[in-house]
């Protein structure tokens, strides 16, 4: 696929060299409505980026494009400096090391916390392999580590359905980590959380960002301030502003979009 400037993926790959995620001129339209309009963005390895924007700015569509759920009409989506994500499906992209957390916490409710993590663990995901899969000592240790990290050790054998909303969010983050991804896409991790939980989630994400690239979509400005990272503002499917939270929040265009014209 070539983008609108006629740059081939090969040439784009050179520009994308050394990036974790590279979006260039990505356009997605649904029945004529442009959910993404020539969106471009680069995430460096080890970087944590917060993405903010009003409703309908294209945040979720962007996640869909990166994880293979939606194919872009135009533009390049490259992972790890050169892998063209538009040519792969969800399962393949997940196996490459891109993990996604949904806006609404989505865990397997009729499985225990432990089983949820087992399923998320990095492993051979083919049907044949899982039919004969056995849980070894290394897997146990990893799960215990994750339970510790997400503060769910006491809930290990509880069904996921019986967790509180915040605990489900953490379990989902734990499942993301169990996949051992290189890039985490986290959609509104603090939605519906109490203030205390929100603050703890920020700490947890900062801890994770030490060893992973993370993209966080969030509405909650206090939470974004807690994260203290570079911020990208989306509006009508493209990037409106980029910089520190203070920089973007003093940007006239951003104020106009957020406060109405």
């Amino acid at each position: 696929m070539t983008n609108r400037k006629g740059v081939t993926p090969h040439e784009a790959a050179k520009v994308a060299d050394g990036s974790m995620l590279y979006l260039d001129g990505v356009t997605v339209s649904f029945d004529g409505f442009k959910a993404l309009n020539s969106l471009s963005m680069i995430i460096k390895p080890g970087e944590m980026r917060a993405i903010i924007g009003p409703n309908g700015a294209g945040k979720t569509t962007m996640m869909d494009v990166i994880t293979g759920k939606t194919r872009p009409d135009l533009g390049d989506v490259l992972f790890d400096g050169g892998v063209d994500l538009t040519k792969h499906d969800e399962a393949a992209i997940a196996s490459m090391g891109i993990g996604r957390k949904f806006q609404k916490p989505t865990v397997f409710e009729s499985h225990s916390v432990y089983d949820n993590l087992i399923l998320a663990l990095k492993q051979n995901r083919t049907a044949r392999a899982t039919l004969f899969a056995m849980t070894g000592k290394a897997d146990e240790d990893r799960i215990n580590e994750l339970l510790e990290l997400t503060r769910l050790t006491a809930q290990r054998d509880l069904l996921a359905a019986n967790l509180s909303h915040g605990q489900k969010q953490w379990l989902e983050i734990g499942m993301l980590l169990a996949q051992d991804p290189r890039l985490l896409l986290v959609d509104e991790p603090a939605a519906g959380m109490t203030d205390a939980e929100t603050a703890e989630t920020a700490v947890l994400l900062k801890e994770i960002a030490k060893s992973h690239s993370v993209v966080v979509v969030e509405h909650d400005m206090d939470f974004v301030r807690d994260l203290d990272v570079r911020v990208t503002v989306l509006h009508e499917g493209s990037v409106l502003a980029e910089g520190t939270l203070d920089q973007v929040s003093s940007n006239d265009r951003v104020i106009e979009v957020y406060l109405g014209r």
Partner: peptide
């Protein structure tokens, strides 16, 4: 089948198919 890890994947697919996909499971083959 149902007590193997595959059985857990099957239940996962039943309860939240796209979550299973985003975890990297090829739902169609299961």
């Amino acid at each position: 089948v149902t007590t193997s890890r595959m059985g857990k994947v099957l239940i996962a697919i039943r309860d939240a198919e796209s979550r299973a996909r985003f975890l990297g499971y090829r739902v169609e083959y299961y």
